[in-house]
């Protein structure tokens, strides 16, 4: 190869690659609107994005997997946590996590209420961008793995598919792992492993105790009824704890009565009632 040929090689390969890249960039612009739900970018979402930048969140967290590795990825956070939870968390993270246990804590950021509200709208916009299904399994903030958080929207490879002939409780277990927002991102079924929600180990026993206690003000009369009520109307009775509720409102998301069918609800309830 001569010097001249080498130079032509350098210039030609650069030019071809750059041209292909520009064409693909133009085509991407054609598709950004749909992939990112660009019409859902309201002024609130834009303001929320500015808040995200202003407080330097990216240098602790990742969003779309980009940022720093000191704190959890937040791409799908609004699919795991409801508005009420996130609002209370942003006001004071130290009420939710203990630096002595996890050795890390998010500093309180002094955000205004408007900033918090718009930030959550922005994070919710992020969660709905079509990003090729990443992360492949949900990334949760806490939890011991194994029994919790193992499953994403899709069925993981290697688990038994649940079909119509199976026991309702087995189907319920499946729903517990796949419902949206995921029960497993807030609840474990191991004793003492409290995450954003209390551990559901011993659920049946505790439900009975709750029903018999004078503090109980809900409408349920039996164990399954109590569990069902906890799912469809989380605020009807509150498990005490500052990280679980504020001002009488549970941080557990509402809307499961709509996203789950009547059958699914009873299967889920039947499953949880087996946790003695």
């Amino acid at each position: 190869m001569t010097n001249r040929q080498a130079r032509i090689f350098a210039i030609a390969s650069t030019a071809i690659a750059a041209l292909a890249f520009l064409v693909l960039t133009l085509d991407s612009h054609r598709q950004f609107g749909e992939l990112t739900n660009a019409d859902a970018i309201t002024p609130e979402v834009t303001h929320g994005k500015d808040v995200w930048h202003k407080y330097n969140c990216i240098n602790c967290h990742t969003l779309f997997g980009e940022g720093a590795y000191y704190a959890p990825d937040l791409t799908k956070i609004t699919q795991h946590r409801g508005d009420a939870y996130l609002t209370a968390y942003m006001r004071d993270p130290s009420k939710f996590y203990d630096e002595k246990i996890h050795r890390r804590l998010m500093p309180t950021q002094d955000l205004s209420e408007k900033e918090i509200a718009d930030l959550i709208k922005f994070l919710d916009w992020v969660a709905n961008v079509d990003n090729q299904g990443w992360p492949p399994r949900p990334i949760t903030v806490t939890g011991s793995g194994m029994s919790s958080g193992v499953v994403a929207q899709r069925q993981p490879e290697g688990t038994t598919p649940v079909d119509a002939e199976d026991d309702p409780r087995a189907k319920g277990e499946q729903i517990f792992r796949t419902a949206q927002p995921g029960c497993t991102s807030c609840h474990s079924i191991e004793p003492g492993v409290d995450m954003a929600g209390p551990s559901l180990a011993g659920m049946a026993t505790r439900a009975e105790e709750t029903l018999n206690s004078p503090e109980y003000e809900g409408d349920a009369t039996d164990i399954e009824g109590y569990i069902r009520e906890s799912i469809v109307a989380p605020s009807a009775h509150l498990v005490p704890g500052e990280m679980y509720s504020s001002g009488g409102t549970s941080f557990m998301p509402t809307g499961y009565d709509e996203s789950l069918s009547e059958d699914e609800l009873s299967q889920l309830t039947a499953y949880l009632a087996t946790l003695k």
Binding site: A6, F9, A10, I11, A12, S13, T14, I16, A17, A18, A20, F21, D27, S28, Q31, F32, L35, T36, F64, G65, E66, V129, D130, N131, Q132, W134, P135
Partner: peptide, 21 residues
């Protein structure tokens, strides 16, 4: 030449999960 043949289109290794085609 080698840098740019690979490197320009290689930018796409940062595009996988961010909401692009």
């Amino acid at each position: 030449g080698l840098v740019f043949i690979a490197g320009i289109l290689g930018t796409a290794h940062h595009y996988y999960w961010v909401g692009v085609p």
